[in-house]
Design a protein around this nucleic acid. Structure first.
Length: 583
DNA sequence: AACGTCACCAACCGCGTATAG
DNA sequence: TCTATACGCGGTTGGTGACGT
C-alpha cells in the first residue's frame, strides 16, 4: 500500500508540471475529492471505484504527511510558474505556501463568512492569514462580493432589472460595477454575464443590441446635456466623467453628439454603424445598438417580413414603437427587427440614397474606441474569404485587399460609391465586405453632406412600404446562395468569432493554453530509481483486465503525450490495485 | 444512448488606481 | 518622489447542465 501512495504522490507532483497537466484533465465529480484536493481533475469513475469515502481522508492525510519534503521541493521548483503553482495547489497545504483555486467549498464559504462577520469586509489578504483559508485575498473578496454577501439577490433577473440593465448599459457602457450599484443585490459579475449572454443571443438572432427606445432615450439625454452646455464643456470632461462618475455615455452616443446635425434628424438614428462593428467586433457590448444586424439567410426573412413593413413605416417624426422588453431576446423577431439589412442590394440599386442614409454612420466619424473593445480581435476576425470571394462578382471590388483595421479609417473613406454597381448587385461575398463598402460610401456621404442635407434628401420619407419586402423577395426569388442574405456580416462575424481560434490559426502549444505537448523529461528523470522500477514493474501488469480498463481512461494522456504513457498507466495501475483492495 | 452545441455561471487573470510607508 | 501593497474592475476562461441531433 505504501508503494501505491508513493506512486500517487509522484503523480500529484507531476501535475505541477505543465507538460503533465493534461494527464489530469479529467472531470471530477466526487465532491470529497474536490474538497480535499481542490479543482484537481481526476477520473471520477476510477476514483469512486478505488477509494471509499471513509478512507479518502486517510489517503490524503497520508499523502500529505509522507510527501511533505517532496512537496516543499516541488513548490520550490514551481515558484517560477505561479499560475501553475496556484493551479496545482491542492489547497490542503499548510503555511500558505500554496493558494487554492477553483470552486469554493461550503466549508470555505463558512470560514469566509465567519471571518467577515467578525472582522468586516476589506483587508482581504488578511483573511488568508487569520482564518486559515488557502485562498488569495482577491478570491476571497470575489467570493464574498458575488456570493456570500447577505444582501445579494439570488435568482434570475426580473424584467424590470433587465430593462434597467439595458438602459444602464446604453448610458454607461461596460461599467459593470457602476451598473451593479444601480441594481441593489446584483453583482457586476452577474450583470456582465447577463449582458454577454444577451449580446450573444441578440447577435445570433441578428437583432440590435439596444432597443430603439433605449437608444433614443440615451441620445436625448446626451443631447440634453449638450444643450445645457455640459457636452460642449469638452470631451475631456466627459472622458473624466467616464472614469469617475459612473454615468458615462458610451462613445457611440458621444459620437452622435459630434454629429449634431444628425441629431436633428431622427431617422438618421437608423444608421447602421457597420464600422462600429468592424471597429469593435460583434461581441462588443459597445457596439452601437442601432446597428443593423445583418440578417441570416432566407429563413429569417420570412420572420421579418412584418417588421420590415413596420420598419418602412418609420418616418422622420416617429420611430416604430414596441416594447423592447417584451421578451428577453426580442425573440419575436417580427416585432423587434425594425431595421432592415443594410446588405439589401436592391435597396442599393433602387434606392441608393436609402442605403446612404441607412448606412450613413455616425460611428464612421467616431475615431475613438473604447479601450476595452476588442479591436485587435476584430482585426483578426476579418474572414479572408470575403475578399477573395468578392473578386468573382459584380459587387464593388475594393481597390485593395481587405485592409487591416489600422488602416480601416482610411479604407472606408475610399470613394467606392463612385464605382459602378451592376444591375444585379449580388455580392460575391458575404456581409463584411459589403459593410466595408457601404461604410465607405456612407462615410463619403457623411463627409460631403451636412445633416440637414441628409434630412432633405433622405429617401426615408419617400420610401415606399413595398420596397423593402420586395427587395428581399427579389433576393429570395433569385435564390442566390451568395446573396447578401445568404451570409450576413453578422453571421460571418459570429461564426468566425466562435470558430476562429480553432480554424484560422495553426495549432500550437502557445495557441492552446494548457496543451503543452512537449513532455518534460525531468519528470521521469526526477523519479527515484526505485520508483522507476516500481513503475516499470507495474508496466508488466498492464495486461491485467482491470488495468486495461483503467488505461482506457487515460486515452487522452496517451494521445497527448505518449512519453507520459507510463505514468498514466502507472496511475491506472495504482487505481486498479486500489480497486481491488477496497473491494 | 452518444455526441455536439449552447447558455449560464463561477472564478481567474491582468491591469489600473489608490494608498501607505 | 518612489515603491510596495491592496483593492477594484473588466475581460476572459473553463466547468456544467440542458437541449437538440
Amino acid at each position: 500500500m505504501k508503494r501505491k501512495w508513493r506512486l500517487l504522490l509522484n503523480f500529484r507532483n507531476w501535475r505541477f508540471h505543465d507538460s503533465t497537466w493534461l494527464i489530469l484533465s479529467f472531470t471530477v465529480q466526487t465532491k470529497k475529492f474536490v474538497d480535499c484536493f481542490g479543482p484537481l481533475n481526476f477520473i471520477t469513475g476510477l476514483w469512486k471505484a478505488s477509494l471509499a469515502d471513509h478512507n479518502f481522508r486517510q489517503l490524503t492525510k497520508m499523502i500529505d504527511t509522507a510527501t511533505e519534503a517532496e512537496n516543499t521541493k516541488t513548490f520550490r521548483c514551481r515558484k517560477n510558474s505561479p499560475s501553475v503553482e496556484e493551479a496545482g495547489s491542492g489547497g490542503n497545504s499548510s503555511g500558505g505556501s500554496a493558494l487554492k483555486k477553483g470552486p469554493w467549498t461550503s466549508a470555505e464559504d463558512a470560514i469566509l463568512v465567519d471571518y467577515v462577520s467578525k472582522h468586516g469586509e476589506g483587508n482581504w489578504n488578511a483573511v488568508q492569514k487569520h482564518s486559515g483559508l488557502s485562498r488569495c485575498g482577491k478570491s476571497c473578496r470575489l467570493r464574498w462580493a458575488n456570493h456570500l454577501r447577505p444582501d445579494l439577490k439570488k435568482g434570475a433577473f426580473t424584467p424590470e432589472e433587465e430593462s434597467c440593465i439595458i438602459q444602464l448599459h446604453a448610458k454607461m457602457g461596460n461599467k459593470w460595477a457602476c451598473m451593479a450599484a444601480e441594481l441593489p443585490g446584483r453583482t457586476d459579475n452577474e450583470i456582465k454575464n447577463y449582458w454577454n449572454t444577451r449580446i450573444k443571443r441578440l447577435q445570433r438572432a441578428g437583432l440590435p443590441i439596444y432597443p430603439p427606445e433605449t437608444s433614443v432615450q440615451a441620445m436625448k439625454e446626451c443631447q440634453k446635456s449638450q444643450d445645457m452646455g455640459s457636452c460642449r464643456e469638452g470631451e475631456k470632461n466627459r472622458h473624466d466623467a467616464s472614469q469617475k462618475n459612473c454615468f458615462d455615455i458610451p462613445h457611440e452616443f458621444k459620437t452622435l453628439e459630434l454629429n449634431q446635425g444628425l441629431l436633428s434628424c431622427p431617422h438618421a438614428l437608423l444608421d447602421l454603424p457597420a464600422s462600429s462593428i468592424l471597429q469593435k467586433g460583434v461581441n462588443s457590448s459597445h457596439s452601437f445598438g442601432f446597428m443593423f444586424q445583418a440578417m441570416h439567410p432566407q429563413k429569417r426573412l420570412r420572420d421579418l417580413e412584418t417588421p420590415f413593413c413596420n420598419c418602412v413605416g418609420i418616418t422622420t417624426d416617429s420611430f416604430p414603437s414596441f416594447d423592447p422588453y417584451e421578451d428577453d431576446t426580442y425573440g419575436k423577431l417580427g416585432r423587434t427587427f425594425w431595421l432592415s439589412s443594410p446588405y439589401d442590394a436592391d435597396l442599393n440599386v433602387n434606392n441608393p440614397s436609402i442605403v446612404d442614409v441607412l448606412l450613413g454612420s455616425h460611428a464612421l466619424i467616431n475615431g475613438n474606441s473604447s479601450s476595452s473593445e476588442p479591436i485587435v480581435a476584430m482585426k483578426s476576425e476579418l474572414p479572408s474569404l470575403q475578399y477573395s470571394a468578392s473578386h468573382g462578382g459584380s459587387w464593388p471590388i475594393p481597390p485593395s485587399p481587405l485592409p487591416s483595421l489600422e488602416s480601416f479609417d482610411t479604407s472606408i473613406q475610399t470613394p467606392l460609391r463612385d464605382q459602378k454597381q451592376s444591375d444585379c448587385p449580388s455580392p460575391r461575398s458575404s456581409g463584411l465586405l459589403e459593410a466595408i463598402v457601404y461604410e465607405s460610401q456612407s462615410l463619403k456621404i457623411l463627409k460631403n453632406k451636412s445633416c440637414p442635407q441628409i434630412s432633405e434628401t433622405s429617401p426615408m420619407a419617400g420610401y415606399t412600404v413595398e420596397s423593402l419586402p420586395q427587395s428581399i423577395a427579389k433576393w429570395e426569388a433569385c435564390g442566390d446562395p451568395i446573396s447578401p442574405f445568404s451570409q450576413s456580416a453578422a453571421s460571418v462575424f459570429g461564426e468566425t468569432l466562435i470558430s476562429r481560434s480553432s480554424s484560422d490559426e495553426p495549432l500550437s502549444a502557445e495557441a492552446m493554453p494548457g496543451y503543452k505537448i512537449k513532455p518534460e523529461a525531468v519528470d521521469w528523470i526526477s523519479l527515484e530509481s526505485d520508483e522507476k522500477k516500481d513503475i516499470s514493474s507495474l508496466q508488466l501488469e498492464c495486461m491485467r483486465p482491470d488495468v486495461l480498463l483503467d488505461s482506457f481512461w487515460f486515452g487522452q494522456c496517451i494521445w497527448h503525450n505518449k512519453d507520459q504513457f507510463i505514468t498514466a498507466m502507472d496511475m491506472g495501475q495504482l487505481l486498479g490495485d486500489d480497486t481491488n483492495r477496497c473491494n
